[in-house]
Design a protein around this nucleic acid. Sequence first.
DNA 1: CTGAGTGCAAACGTTTTGCACTTGC
DNA 2: GCAAGTGCAAAACGTTTGCACTCAG
Lengths: 144, 144
Amino acid sequence: MNYQTLLKENDLKVTPQRLELLSLMDTKGHISVEAMYEEIQKKFSAISLATLYKNINLMMDKQVVTEVKIPHEKSRYEISKETHSHLHCRECGEVVDIFLDFSKAVAKVEKLSHYKIEGENIIFSGLCPKCQTSHSNESVNLTV
Amino acid sequence: MNYQTLLKENDLKVTPQRLELLSLMDTKGHISVEAMYEEIQKKFSAISLATLYKNINLMMDKQVVTEVKIPHEKSRYEISKETHSHLHCRECGEVVDIFLDFSKAVAKVEKLSHYKIEGENIIFSGLCPKCQTSHSNESVNLTV
DNA sequence: CTGAGTGCAAACGTTTTGCACTTGC
DNA sequence: GCAAGTGCAAAACGTTTGCACTCAG
């Protein structure tokens, strides 16, 4: 992905901080403000939280970045892409994308509710493949 | 709905503040902390925000109340009920319940992802029937 | 009567703001 | 060169905490 172009297309100046931010969201997938701050400090030790917030908000306004609100967790952020859903593991916290076609469901909802549906926000929660088998931490110290 | 029973079943003492809180969530449907505070002050002018938060958190811990995270909006709260989805009007902010069966989709997701799905969180956004026709505010002051 | 709930004030963590300095274009 | 972006410090905001008082059971 070309972050420079992405910024320019949205009338945002290309700064090294912004490039790194986009790179983080792109490679780490779904990242919280906290984690972004920790990560970006590795390259820009003097970066300010204010700058981080300003950029996240600006990019959200421009729809370059999308906020993902996960039940019982803090928001995470991703680079906007085609409509997709999310899978969230309640054990390890992992969030992954899943591309599914809900147009049938949307049509049904429109018929039933008379709403004009413009978008859907879908998060499935459960256990990822790894956490279904590794219950190592679950049974520790059960002697109460 | 019997709020007294609901509280007792969850080992929560029955207080007038809690009864009113549950009544608000029940009748108003999906309500923000802010709106709850404004409403509850009509009956309990001296109520503290701390009490409000303590009760919301306590009831969430006990799963009596569920947080609804809507894109671009503050969280709202509802009395927990059977699995259901939500419809959100971006114009007037209304949120309504819709009961749909997504078990087929869940099965598909499990097959594709190898996740074990325990719950889904689905919000459709768009325009409610009223806001599709009344565009009164949309075209005001377009002369730039 | 006793522990749980309430209200108040203070504290806390997160996010936003104003301003001087720096940088991209 | 100038508007936009950055970093810093202070402020604002929403939420939580500790404590004395009150009330439900």
